[in-house]
Design a binder for these strands. Structure first.
Lengths: 141, 141
DNA sequence: TCAAATTAAATTGCGTGCAATTTAATTTTA
DNA sequence: TAAAATTAAATTGCACGCAATTTAATTTGA
């Protein structure tokens, strides 16, 4: 008789623990550029797309305005992004990078590789993990 | 030239997104027994070990007293656990289950299987994921 | 043995996450 | 076309997570 309530039988707990562990690993690197992990993710979206609405960012990061609005205000205070209402649709807020925000990209460039190395995970393992995770994330409600 | 700053090149973002997604999947099931996911994890530790110090729980869940103290106070308010200073070492707080806390286990029993089914993940994939994750978690500072 | 170091929780402060509600703008439709 | 429905952000409220500090108890070591 299996005991599915035992911690070491769980899959979800390791995922939850790993997520926090990975963010911990990022911290010293992100501290150097004064960013939190979610703030770094938002900037990653903007480095790739220059301008995005709050909703578009939320769609990519799976975060809602309740999380993003205050986070974006903090990035604005740090002079990394600009928030402005769309001219064509006043409901929409468009987020774009300041020059400072664009420049931060250079400093951030080495972070992903450093992290992979630090985690000591092989490229094959990364692929396997990503495939399973993407499959799990795709089965949305 | 690879662009490691692209979101879809990342491993860490999928892990972070999956962790939140999984907790979302738990929510409706845990709502029925009025628990958050971290509260459920603490109870899982106690269902397995009856009595644990704050530090012992923190060691198993990788959480510190800053997170656990208020969480445990909430579980105490719900009459699910008892918090009491150790007689032999006044610094230590021992956490044990109330009868109500013990009984909750029955209701929680079906949750893990339900979740695995809902996620649509195979037992083999679970094993693969867990092996990689455990390897990553083991390489502690 | 007793001051210094260590340890366990608690506290403080801040930044998420997210449900639920609110506000304001736009779109739909009767 | 004007009320109803929808949509995008913002707001509110609560529960983590975690760094840093504090408090109190215990252990160590000169």
């Amino acid at each position: 008789m299996e005991d599915y309530l035992k911690l070491d039988k769980q899959l979800c707990f390791p995922i939850y623990a790993l997520s926090r562990e990975v963010i911990q690993r990022y911290r010293p690197l992100l501290d150097e550029i004064d960013l939190t992990y979610p703030q770094y993710l938002v900037l990653m979206v903007l480095w790739e797309h220059q301008q995005q609405t709050v909703n578009q960012i939320g769609g990519k990061l799976l975060l809602d305005s309740g999380t993003l609005t205050p986070l974006l205000k903090r990035l604005e205070q740090k002079q990394l992004v600009i928030r402005q209402r769309s001219k064509t649709d006043e409901r929409v807020v468009e987020i774009s990078l300041t020059d400072e925000g664009k420049q931060l990209r250079t400093k951030a460039e080495q972070i992903p590789l450093k992290l992979i190395q630090e985690l000591g995970i092989s490229l094959e393992e990364i692929t396997v993990m990503k495939n399973i995770i993407n499959k799990l994330l795709k089965i949305k409600k």
